[in-house]
Computed example of a mutant assay.
Amino acid sequence: MDLIKEINDKYLALEAEIDQKLEKVQAEELKLERQNEKLVETSIYTPAPRVLSYEEALLRNTNTLKALEIAKARLRSRSTYSPVEKLLQQALHNYKKELESLHEVKDKTNHPESPEEEEDNLYDLVMQNVIEAKKQHTDL
């Protein structure tokens, strides 16, 4: 019976703690509702928007146009063609093709290389492809 009483006491204590937390949450909700009501009341009586003078409007419009031109230039520079990207894409394509052919040869011979040798070969292939792509680009 003592065990049941201990369990009941434990859960009664937990229940009381939860009730206290719930009361705090409800108090915070009421406080938030009051704040929202105050905000609604103050937002109803917003002052009329300020009318700009001709000079102020001209300055604002000029600054807006400058900001738009800067944004337009940034977008244009990001969308322009870059020959470096073409070189990298070609090198990547050559690398993948060479890697596939290496795997085919390796599968045919069933002669596994050590990881260090394979890494050295891959590095050499990538560098060779980059050099070839640069030569092709300079020839154009």
Score class of each variant (00 low, 15 high):
E104W: 10
A73V: 14
I7E: 03
E28T: 07
L32A: 06
A13G: 00
L30G: 12
R76M: 15
T109E: 07
K72C: 09
L52A: 04
E85S: 08
A57R: 13
E119T: 09
Q26R: 12
E56C: 08
E55Q: 13
D107Q: 14
H137M: 15
L14W: 11
P115T: 01
K135L: 02
T62K: 14
L102S: 05
A73L: 14
S77T: 14
K38G: 01
M127Q: 07
A16V: 10
K135C: 00
D19E: 12
K134G: 05
E69F: 06
A73F: 11
S53N: 04
L30H: 13
Q128S: 12
E56T: 09
E100H: 14
A133W: 00
K134V: 05
N121Q: 06
L92D: 09
K135D: 01
Q90A: 06
R34T: 04
S82K: 02
Y95A: 14
E98C: 07
P112Q: 00
E85M: 08
E132Q: 03
E15S: 10
I4V: 13
V51R: 07
D107K: 15
E118F: 12
L102H: 06
L87I: 02
H111D: 13
R78S: 06
E100R: 10
K10V: 00
A133R: 00
V84M: 01
